[in-house]
Design a protein around this nucleic acid. Structure first.
Lengths: 335, 335
DNA sequence: GTTAGAATTGGAAACGATACCTAGTAAAGA
DNA sequence: TCTTTACTAGGTATCGTTTCCAATTCTAAC
């Protein structure tokens, strides 16, 4: 079934059928009805490749996800997915663990002929000025590790102030009297936003005259199980620690279980702070104090911005969203 | 940059360049080298649409996800994603909430010119014999509601015996002395596998001479928050209930929090059984007894099967995987 | 030196849509 | 009645590949 077949069956020319399909105005309504009925009867769907070939408009949006598909990313993914489809674009999902995020991104764009791409997570610290030069594509980075302002006009970013967020979380613990505060990061070899969060933590510690201890870093790999294991062995050996700041809520849950299974009490013995503001943190018992990221806003903005960029309605932007420290019941006030 | 440009630059014909690109044997090696170097120099990437148009081989694999992107689906998605990419196929993700799953599926296949598709969740109860007739595509259904054996040779399924699983969970509660057992399903209007699970629950209740109560069905919509709210109001009004069987672990966590916030104790006052076998259920405190689905096996098998089907190495299969009741600490033994 | 056969190579017709350009028809105005 | 204008419709070149078929070159044996 091609457009030619439909044209013959409806007794009109191919251009007319094309006009009908694309909702062009210059078609008599009875002709349109007739063509439409034939299309429906024969279950005709236009060949996307042929259209793309002619129009050089692929309508492909890529989503490049780095690392774990944690519930936080999934929630964002779902929101993005819904909006992308609603706009008649095709969403191509790629997951990777490649340390070279930039090359992966560029390859993805070229290979899939993307018009736009959203990156979820990853390190983009050494972006080169010319990296995106020859590709005319709308790029939005979400939750990435990016400190340089190089090539600042070649892509957009939507992020929270990860360092300030981590600073706040740590300061909150210190204000509550904690001094021996450990931090749980993701992958030792590929920190991503974890690096920025660690810097916030570090600054808060130092600003309050506490000594930084490298051995207070735990790597939980963003997984509940790993977090549980690592926290268990860590707590066994560092009895003086009174608080752990985990940079994801899922890891915070692993830590919580470790605390319980060691015969300790969450809050009274070990205070816990999470990060993300997932529902599970709220519905865990005790409710875990966490840094809430505006995930719905983040996903909505990223898609909106992407389409604005695609339509040439805006220049590249760098948006910083607010976070919120949501108090739970997992932090003890010491004296 | 097109194949013609490359041909001119290399001083050969387009067919030769095409042969080089596609690794056809009939090219002198020095010609090949030359063409390859030009391709590299000019950063040429073949136009995928043109290729697809000619070859009608899109290498597109679709993933159609119904309803919520819960952590269970995300985990499966991640596994699938990795394998699909490794095979050089493109993964197109679509999320929907359309009650008519079959039409959505067929439209998805046609529009995106898919070669294969995996469905995650949904209702496929009224599949018609001719539904997939004109589409030559490998279909694997995962975690779907499907009872008829119509068109059994047009698609594959990978599933667990949802009814037996739910039967087991319910029977386990009954064996532990519970009689007033509520069940928490997903969406009232779109049950999916929930329907099958409900039947298992119902049968277990009846087999043990307990009266079925329609008002013991709670609809938690597969969300922690909803589950929490619904369980809270349910428990306030049904004080005789001693156990709740939630058909997802995330909902089980919502239920758990509801129990705690009502001043009751998980296990001692209200027993909870989940479904899925997610890490969070294991690391929740108390560990939630759950029906564990072999999610890694499910995702691996679905992709393997899909590619076998694509390569014509096998006929359609209908695989039933085993589940396991993983005991936690959320069930009280009554006398 | 010829020639069969193999090894390479080039030309050109598709694939299925879009959109420019042209043409016919009907209504409106002169 | 004739011209102008607005609609509506059709023909066809084109997008960038692949691949069939034909043509050319090369190799080696006579």
């Amino acid at each position: 079934m091609t457009i030619t077949d439909i044209a013959k069956l409806s007794g009109v020319g191919v251009s007319t059928v094309s006009r009908v399909i694309n909702n062009h105005p210059d078609v008599k309504s009875e002709t349109r009805e007739k063509v439409l009925s034939i299309i429906k009867e024969y279950n005709y769907v236009p060949n996307n490749s042929a259209r793309i070939l002619k129009q050089s408009n692929t309508k492909n949006i890529g989503i490049l996800v780095k690392g774990v598909f944690n519930p936080f990313f999934s929630a964002i993914l779902k929101n993005i997915s819904t909006s992308v489809e609603a706009s008649g674009y095709t969403m191509i999902l790629q997951h990777h663990n490649n340390p070279n995020d930039l090359d992966t991104l560029v390859g993805f764009i070229k290979e899939k002929k993307l018009q736009g791409v959203i990156c979820l997570g990853g390190n983009f610290i050494d972006i080169k000025e010319e990296s995106f030069d020859d590709l005319d594509v709308a790029i939005v980075l979400l939750c990435v590790n990016l400190k340089t302002q190089k090539a600042w006009n070649s892509f957009s970013t939507i992020s929270i102030a990860d360092d300030i967020a981590a600073y706040e979380a740590t300061r909150y613990l210190i204000e509550n009297g904690h001094r021996n505060i450990a931090i749980m990061l993701g992958d030792r070899d590929d920190l991503g936003v974890g690096l920025i969060r660690y810097e916030g933590y570090k600054r808060a510690i130092e600003d309050n005259g506490i000594e930084i201890r490298e051995d207070y870093i735990i790597y939980g790999e963003y997984e509940v199980t790993k977090a549980y294991e690592k926290a268990t062995s860590f707590l066994k050996e560092n009895k003086e620690v009174t608080a752990i700041f985990a940079i994801s809520d899922m890891m915070a849950i692993g830590v919580a279980k470790a605390v319980v299974n060691l015969g300790l009490k969450i809050r009274d013995d070990i205070s816990i702070v999470g990060f993300d503001g997932m529902d599970v943190a709220k519905y865990y018992e005790p409710t875990i104090t966490t840094i809430k990221q505006p995930k719905d806003e983040m996903s909505k903005m990223s898609v909106d911005l992407l389409f604005e960029l695609l339509n040439g309605e805006t220049q590249h932007k760098h948006i910083l969203l607010d976070i919120e420290l949501v108090e739970g019941n997992s932090i003890k006030k010491i004296n």
